[in-house]
Design a protein around this nucleic acid. Structure first.
Lengths: 336, 336
DNA sequence: TTGTAGGCGTTATCAC
DNA sequence: GTGATAACGCCTACAA
C-alpha cells in the first residue's frame, strides 16, 4: 500500500506537490507533474479514501436507498442510476431500508461522515424535516417520491395522470366495477398529502368521478405488493358474491399473481375479470394474459436523477430542479 | 459531530478510557463506564468510520459482489445475505460487476483500504490467483461459485446433481431430443474446469449418457440469460426443420421467455415442446404454463455464507469451510 | 485502572 | 512554484 509520501519520495518532490497534482490544483510545473505521474503508476498508488474522508474531502460516491432490492422496479431503477453514475465516474452504494426508518438514517449518516457525497432516496421513510437536516452535510436527491420542497433535486413520474389514464381506459372499455390495489398499509388519502400513493389515488378518483362513480370500499385492497399478495387478492375476489369486473393491480407483480391464481381457479381473464398492471416490467409479457399496464420510464428516471445529482456535485448550475416524467397505457391482453 | 474527546470531556475521563469502553476492552471501572455511556448518548456520539479505517480497525461491513442486481436470482441472494448480516450487526454494500474484471477489483480494493472486513463474491470475473492475493487484507468468501481451494469459505448448490436430476426427469418422461441453454458465451467444457456452468453441463452429459445419447450441437444455445433471450431461443427453435422436443432453459427467466413466445407462435407447451426451468423463482408460478424447474435454496445459501463469514470474522472456529446444498426438481406443468 | 502521546494518509495553510 | 507542518478522529503502546 503505497502512500502519498512514497510517491513524493520516488518522484523527488514534496507531498504537497503530489497532492496538488492528484487534485489537479494550479501551481505545478509540467516537469514535476510528469515525474509524479510516473511515480504514481510505478507504485500503483491510489489515495486512501478513509484519509480523505477524515479531511472532509469528497468520496466520489453516491448512496442510493431503496425499500427492497428484490422488487424488480427498484433493482431496475438502481441499475439505471448506477450505470449513469458510473459514466460520470461516481461509485454507487445501495442501501436497502426494508421500510425501516433506522436503515434510512444509516444512509443519511454516510453523508455526515463523508462516506458519500450524495444520497439519492428512492423511498422515504422518515419525515422530510428530519431528512432535510442532513443536507447540510451533503446533497440529497429524491427519486420516485414526492417532497414539497422546490429546492430539492427530484425526479418522478406523473403518477396521478398515469393512474387517471389507466382508470379512464378501463372505464372507456365499459368496466364500471373497479377494484383498487395499493402497496400502502391503509388508504390514508387526503388532498394535502403529496406522495406517490395519494397521487395515484387522486388520479383514480378523478377518472371515476368523470363517470359519476364512487370508489367501493369493499373492493379496495391494501398492503399488496408481491406476486403472492396478488394471488391472495384474487382468492378474495373469487369468493365475493358481488365481484368487481376489473382490478387495478398497482404493480405488474400483483397483476401477475392475480392472473396466475385466476388461471388455477378457472376464472377467465379478461372476460370475467380485467386486470390492469403498473410499471410495464419484462414480467408483464410472460404471464398467461400479457398485461395491459402503465409504462414507467424507469431508465429515464434513473438517468435523470443521477445526472442531476452529478451536475450539482460538480457545481454546474441546474435549470430545472424537478422533473416529472409522463406515464402511458400499454395495451396488451389482460383488459378486453 | 461529537468526537471521542467531546465525550471524554463531558464524562470527565480521558479519551483512552472512552475508547476502551467503545471497544469493550477490559480494565474499566463500572463507575466510569456508566459516566461515559451517559455522555455518549447525551451527545449522540458514534465513532467516525473513516478514522477507524485509517487506524486499520474493522468496519463491520461486508461487500457482496454480483454480476447484475437486476437478475432476480442475485437480488434474492443479496437480500438473504444482507438480512443475515444485519442480524449479526454487519453492514452490507452491494457491488455490481457488470461482468467486468475492473468492477470486481474495486470491491477487492475495499478490503485493502479497510472499507470492508470481508467480501462475499457471488460471481467471479478475475483469475482466482489474482483474487486470492487480496485475502491478506481481509476475508474472502465465495457464494454460488466454484473455487478449487479447500481453505476458502464457500457455499454453493450442487449444480451437477441438479442438472443431472432435471435432465434425467425429462429423459424418464420420454423426451429424447433435448435442447440446452446456458448463460455463458460459449460452451468451453472440459473435465478439469470447476465452475457452475461446467458442473451443470457435466450433470447434463451424465444423464444423457445413461440413455446412450450425445448432446446435439445444433440444439445448444449460448449466451442466453434474460426473458428476451428466451424469446429469441424459441423463435430459432420454431424455425427448425428438426426440432427438439424439450428445452433445458438454464433459468426461469429464459424459460418464461420461451413459453411466452411459444404462446404467441401458437406452439403448444408441453405437448410440442417441454420446458425445464432452473432456480424456482416466484416468476415460475405466473407464466402461462407454470414451470417445472429445479429449485435452488437461495435463502439458505445466502444465510449460510453470511453466517460463515461472520463466524470467521469473529474468530470462531469453523468446522466445515465448504457447504454444498442439494437441488431438486419441482414438478409443475411445463413438462408433460 | 487510568492518562498521555504518537501516528495512521491526506489536504490546507502558510512560509519561502 | 514548492515545501514544511498542522490538523482531521481514532486507537494503542507506554507510562503512571
Amino acid at each position: 500500500m503505497a502512500t502519498i509520501s512514497d510517491v513524493a519520495k520516488l518522484a523527488g518532490v514534496s507531498v504537497s506537490t503530489v497532492s496538488r497534482i492528484i487534485n489537479n490544483k494550479p501551481h505545478v510545473s509540467p516537469r514535476k507533474a510528469a515525474l509524479v505521474a510516473d511515480a504514481m503508476t510505478k507504485l500503483g498508488y491510489s489515495p486512501l479514501q478513509a484519509a480523505r474522508q477524515m479531511r472532509g474531502s469528497g468520496s466520489q460516491t453516491i448512496a442510493v436507498t431503496v425499500p427492497y432490492i428484490t422488487n424488480p422496479f427498484f433493482s431496475e431503477l438502481v441499475a439505471a442510476i448506477e450505470r449513469t453514475a458510473d459514466e460520470r465516474s461516481y461509485k454507487t452504494v445501495i442501501v436497502q431500508t426494508f421500510g425501516q426508518k433506522s436503515h434510512e438514517l444509516n444512509a443519511l449518516e454516510f453523508l455526515k461522515t463523508n462516506q458519500v457525497d450524495a444520497v439519492i432516496m428512492c423511498a422515504i421513510e422518515n419525515d422530510w424535516d428530519l431528512i432535510k437536516q442532513y443536507s447540510q452535510y451533503g446533497l440529497i436527491g429524491v427519486c420516485n417520491e414526492y417532497v414539497a420542497d422546490p429546492d430539492v433535486l427530484m425526479v418522478h413520474a406523473d403518477q396521478e395522470s398515469g393512474m387517471y389514464a389507466g382508470t379512464k381506459y378501463l372505464l372507456n372499455r365499459g368496466y364500471r366495477k373497479l377494484a383498487f390495489c395499493t402497496g400502502q398499509q391503509d388508504i390514508r388519502f387526503n388532498d394535502n398529502i403529496e406522495d406517490l400513493n395519494s397521487d395515484r389515488y387522486r388520479g383514480y378518483l378523478r377518472a371515476l368521478r368523470e363517470f359519476d362513480l364512487e370508489p367501493s370500499v369493499e373492493w379496495q385492497f391494501t398492503d399488496v405488493s408481491t406476486i403472492a399478495d396478488g394471488q391472495r387478492v384474487l382468492q378474495r375476489i373469487a369468493s365475493m358474491k358481488d365481484r368487481p369486473d376489473a382490478v387495478i393491480a398497482g404493480s405488474d407483480q400483483v397483476a401477475a399473481g392475480i392472473i396466475a391464481e385466476a388461471q388455477t381457479l378457472q376464472l377467465k381473464v379478461p372476460q370475467e375479470l380485467a386486470v390492469l398492471g403498473f410499471d410495464d416490467q419484462p414480467l408483464s409479457q410472460v404471464v398467461a394474459q400479457p398485461l395491459t399496464t402503465i409504462h414507467q420510464p424507469i431508465h429515464e428516471i434513473g438517468d435523470a436523477i443521477a445526472n442531476m445529482v452529478a451536475d450539482e456535485l460538480e457545481g454546474d448550475t441546474i435549470d430545472t430542479r424537478q422533473v416529472i416524467m409522463p406515464l402511458s397505457v400499454v395495451v396488451r391482453q389482460s383488459v378486453a
